[in-house]
Amino acid sequence: MEHKTSVRNRVFEELRKVAFPDSRFHFDFGEFITDFEGSSDATQRLIDHPFYQKAKCIFITPDNCLEELRYRALQDGKLILITTYSIKRGFWVLDPAKIDPARYLYAATLDGLEREGEPMSLIDIRDKLPELDFMVTGTGAINEEGVRFGKGHGFFDSEWGMLYRIGKITTDTPSAALVHDCQVLTETLYPEVFDTVADAIYTPTRTIEVEAPHKPTCGIVWDLLDPVMFDTIPPLQELKALEDSGDI
Rank of each mutant, 00 (worst) to 15 (best):
S23D: 14
P50F: 10
Q53N: 08
E37N: 12
P50W: 08
G38R: 10
D48A: 08
G138T: 04
N64V: 00
I60Y: 10
D22A: 04
K98I: 02
E68H: 11
E68V: 04
W92L: 12
T43Q: 06
D100K: 11
D28F: 02
L132V: 05
H49P: 06
E131H: 12
A73W: 11
L94I: 01
I82C: 06
R89D: 14
S86L: 15
R16W: 14
I58G: 10
P21H: 06
F59S: 01
K128R: 15
N64L: 07
E37K: 15
G117L: 02
I87P: 01
L113M: 15
K128S: 09
I123Y: 12
L46Q: 04
L79K: 01
R103C: 13
Q44G: 06
S39G: 00
Q44N: 09
N64E: 12
G140Y: 05
D76L: 07
D124Q: 11
F134P: 06
D35N: 12
R16D: 01
A55D: 05
L81R: 07
V136Y: 12
R70F: 11
A97V: 03
A19S: 08
D48V: 00
A19W: 06
E114P: 00
E37C: 10
R72T: 01
D22N: 15
R70I: 01
P21K: 05
F20E: 10
A42P: 03
T84R: 09
Q44R: 13
D124A: 07
K128A: 09
I123D: 10
P130W: 10
